[in-house]
Write a protein that binds this DNA or RNA. Structure first.
Length: 607
DNA sequence: AGTCGTTACA
């Protein structure tokens, strides 16, 4: 009876309310679905504000699911601060709320804030999942923060996510970006399953850490093991690996794979090809690929500008820049590095200074350390060492950029025999504990150049005494499938004599055509346009480097084999050089000096 | 139900 009554009462009272509640719930659900649909479709801020207001009015802001959608929408429209405000006012943020906001800050280029939110999350009761880890690992990659990355890797294991494909792929990428190739390989090897993304990450890790050969090996292994078609991501990475190796043949083979896989119209792949051909010494091919791009973007133009700049085709680089501006493309900070580089390598100092000046006002880009370093280089190359030195002193940069800046000034001082500035620049490098061996060697060479043999010698002795060792420089040239590496001061390579005799022929031809060498760049004086092209095709920068460039006082540069054994072969070398330069000069390599004076040669070791 | 990862230019 009591039960029945209570049952009846219950039935009587709850039935209508159930009805109402269901109706309300249905209408609530309907409203919610509508609002979320609106958020998913929303592509404009104005309509998003309207939907946000409606969500606020209907009380759905307190619903975590709806609020997450709202955060996502703001993140998608790059309004991360608004997303953060929604997040801040949430009653019950969950793992999705945190992860979405972290992604927002990463998209904004603020990985540091993303890390901060991750740390806050750890202080709350919300636990991270695989999505959170993938995101926060990406933040570490962007910051190249190995310390935090390694800590997070440990947490990944604590949370039992060491088998997650996405998390592990991002770990491989993170270790790669932090220059820890072994870390990357360790994660890659331990993965229980891998996909094309994990393979691509590993290839990129090798390519970005000067192990292009390993990258190419991985690519071959991928093709062999998985028999999967490489996608545009993998192909652009492999093209980049070829570029980093300067290996034209592999680059062409990869280009073939790109065409076969139908990715030649992908703009990233095309940009990578433009860059690769430029780095492998084929600007003509770069241009061919560039012409196939229907709407070249800033990056494609930048690659072309940089490529042209490297070949001493400064005017071409500037024409490309102007063409780009006419097409209403906004140059990036990197574009200006290319432009300034072009001016620097072609002696267009006034133009270069003009572009530097125009950057903030006309293009809205503040020049930073890398631009100023180009300008120091530009001034230094043309002998305006005092201005270059003043500029270098004026710029304040971080230690890493600092080494580049003072290193540039040091090279320029050596080129122009300015011992005073070379001493200052070396001091800066040695004090900051960067490029110490290189600084010693260059300073010693500058002394030698100025005839201060005592100083040159004592510096070398000091290096020997303190055990500072300079890795010998090397150059290489790729002929067919073989790569020939030349080390400074090394014995002649196989077929070395053939190379030397070819070089002699070239020197003679170049002399006939009125070639006057500049420092490293290809500078032409009174040469017809047609001849310029021929010379450029004969002597790409890569080839020139392989033959070795030896600078002579007052900016005259001649080419001899870097690995020519000067002491035993100095008579030969002397003949070669005296054909071109009719004056006294000094040839230096890593260990020895060769002083040619009045037709005779004195050789000596620095040691 | 919603969240995540790989690529290019100095």
């Amino acid at each position: 009876m009591r039960i029945g009554k209570s049952f009846n009462q219950g039935l009587f009272f709850t039935f209508p309310s159930l009805c109402v509640s269901r109706q309300i719930k249905q209408s609530f659900f309907h409203t919610k679905v509508c609002l979320i649909e609106k958020l998913q479709k929303c592509n404009h801020l104005i309509s998003l504000y309207l939907t946000h207001t409606n969500i606020l009015k209907s009380g759905f802001l307190n619903d975590t699911f709806t609020a997450n959608h709202l955060i996502n929408c703001y993140v998608r429209l790059q309004e991360t601060l608004k997303a953060h405000k929604v997040f801040y006012e949430m009653l019950d943020p969950n793992v999705v709320s945190y992860t979405s906001l972290m992604t927002g800050y990463i998209n904004m280029g603020q990985p540091q804030t993303s890390l901060f939110i991750f740390k806050e999350m750890f202080g709350s009761s919300v636990l991270p999942n695989e999505f959170t880890f993938a995101t926060v690992i990406n933040a570490c990659s962007m910051l190249a923060d190995l310390k935090t990355g390694t800590k997070i890797h440990a947490q990944v294991e604590v949370f039992g996510l060491e088998c997650n494909l996405v998390v592990c792929s991002s770990l491989v990428d993170m270790y790669g970006k932090c220059n820890d190739v072994n870390g990357a390989k360790g994660v890659f090897d331990r993965m229980s399953c891998r996909n094309i993304v994990s393979w691509t990450s590993m290839i990129v890790a090798y390519a970005q850490n000067a192990q292009g050969d390993e990258a190419l090996r991985m690519f071959r292994e991928f093709n062999y093991l998985l028999r999967d078609r490489p996608n545009q991501f993998m192909l652009s990475s492999v093209v980049n690996a070829c570029a980093s190796l300067g290996r034209l043949v592999s680059g062409k083979v990869t280009h073939g794979a790109v065409i076969r896989c139908g990715h030649d119209s992908n703009y990233v792949v095309a940009n990578a090809l433009v860059d690769m051909y430029a780095k492998c010494g084929c600007v003509t091919y770069s241009n061919k690929v560039f012409q196939t791009i229907s709407h070249p973007c800033v990056i494609a133009y930048t690659s072309m500008i940089v490529g042209a700049a490297k070949y001493g085709l400064g005017r071409l680089a500037l024409e490309l820049f102007e063409e780009m501006i006419q097409r209403r493309l906004k140059p990036s900070d990197v574009t200006f590095v290319g432009v300034l580089h072009a001016c620097s390598h072609s002696g267009l100092v006034d133009e270069g200074l003009g572009y530097l000046k125009s950057m903030p006002g006309k293009y809205g880009i503040m020049p930073d350390a890398k631009h100023y370093t180009c300008v120091v280089d530009m001034l230094g190359r043309t002998g305006r060492l005092d201005e270059a030195y003043q500029l270098a002193k004026y710029i304040q940069v971080d230690p890493k950029a600092d080494a580049l800046l003072w290193g540039t000034l040091l090279s320029a001082s050596r080129l122009h025999g300015r011992v005073d500035i070379a001493v200052e620049a070396s001091k800066q490098l040695i004090e900051s504990n960067q490029q110490v061996a290189g600084a010693y060697v260059t300073l010693s060479n500058t002394y030698a150049l100025a005839g201060e043999w005592e100083n040159a010698h004592s510096l070398r002795s000091e290096m020997k005494r303190t055990g500072i060792h300079k890795e010998p420089g090397c150059s290489w040239v790729e002929i067919k499938n073989e790569t020939y590496v030349f080390y400074a001061g090394d014995a002649l390579c196989e077929r070395g004599s053939e190379v030397v005799s070819l070089l002699r022929e070239l020197e003679l031809k170049m002399k006939e055509r009125g070639y006057v060498g500049g420092n490293r760049g290809l500078v032409f004086v009174d040469v017809e346009d047609e001849a310029k092209e021929e010379i450029v095709s004969l002597h790409s920068e890569r080839q020139a480097l392989a033959f070795g460039l030896v600078s002579i006082p007052k900016g005259i540069t001649i080419r001899i084999m870097k690995n020519l054994r000067m002491c035993s072969d100095c008579h030969e070398a002397f003949k070669l050089i005296s054909d071109i330069v009719e004056r006294d000069f000094v040839v230096r390599d890593v260990n020895r000096f060769h002083h040619f004076k009045n037709g005779s040669c004195t050789c000596g070791d620095f040691w």
